[in-house]
Design a protein around this nucleic acid. Structure first.
Length: 245
DNA sequence: GTTGAGCGTT
């Protein structure tokens, strides 16, 4: 048994329960401050465990007492202390000191064979103005806190994927624009040249490139062939630049 | 189809 803290580990969760349903069970013992359910990054399948941060140790203690061996679906779930102070305590470990706010719950992937395709569909359901405002927000975040933006994109490849498609749908970063960026001659100073070039690009383009660089190999594989090559080239050209900001 | 133990997905 671990040191008592505010964060509790939930394990042996049924694979067929949604994030929302697990959260509800977690909330049944008290207010939840932060919550994270784990999925396989590639397949989108649930890993069957989660972390719940409660507002205080008393509530967490109550969770350990009441949720351990609680029957959910067809399983007896496990609940014990995680031993960490807060869910986002990878700050010390990664050493970057960047703290991102908790993200909203994702949508249910159960029954989806292709999570990347689903991301695309979700983006398509958004209003044009909504897409613009999301892009605008991403742009402003990239400008005011580039490191946080990098971290956000690195940790959430679906978001990078969504931003690339949002750029396409709003014609803010169409294949033509990408080609235009790639067509710029690369000077001899390699890295510095690429960095200078990057800095000289419109913010819109910078933001799209960041998103592109954060795409996983798997996501790239799933792009249209026409986009795919450009994306690969973009990534090759700028990933070092983006990673060194 | 690889779905059952999993303690933080780099």
């Amino acid at each position: 048994m671990n040191q008592p803290t505010k964060v509790v580990y939930l394990g042996s969760l049924p694979f067929d329960q949604t994030e929302q349903q697990v959260l509800e069970v977690a909330r049944s013992v008290g207010p939840v401050v932060d919550f994270k359910l784990f999925f396989d990054q590639e397949t989108g399948k649930p890993k069957g465990y989660a972390y719940v941060e409660y507002q205080d140790m008393e509530t967490a203690a109550s969770a350990v007492r009441n949720l351990n061996n609680y029957t959910m679906g067809n399983r007896n779930i496990k609940c014990s202390y995680s031993g960490r102070l807060s869910i986002e305590d990878n700050i010390a470990e990664s050493g970057d000191g960047i703290k991102l706010p908790p993200l909203p719950l994702g949508i249910d992937l159960i029954g989806t064979s292709d999570p990347t395709e689903l991301t695309f569909k979700v983006v398509e359901t958004l209003e044009y103005n909504k897409l613009l405002s999301v892009l605008k927000e991403a742009r402003s975040m990239a400008k005011t806190s580039p490191l946080a933006m990098k971290k956000l994109l690195d940790e959430n490849p679906q978001l990078a994927y969504a931003l690339v498609h949002a750029g396409n749908l709003t014609h803010k970063m169409s294949p033509d624009d990408i080609n235009a960026v790639l067509a710029k001659p690369v000077a001899n100073g390699v890295q510095n040249a690429a960095a200078q070039e990057f800095a000289s690009l419109p913010l819109q383009a910078q933001e799209q490139i960041r998103a592109v660089c954060a795409l996983t190999q798997n996501q790239i594989e799933q792009l249209q062939p026409s986009e795919k090559n450009m994306i690969i080239q973009l990534k090759e050209k700028y990933s070092n630049v983006v990673n060194n900001i």
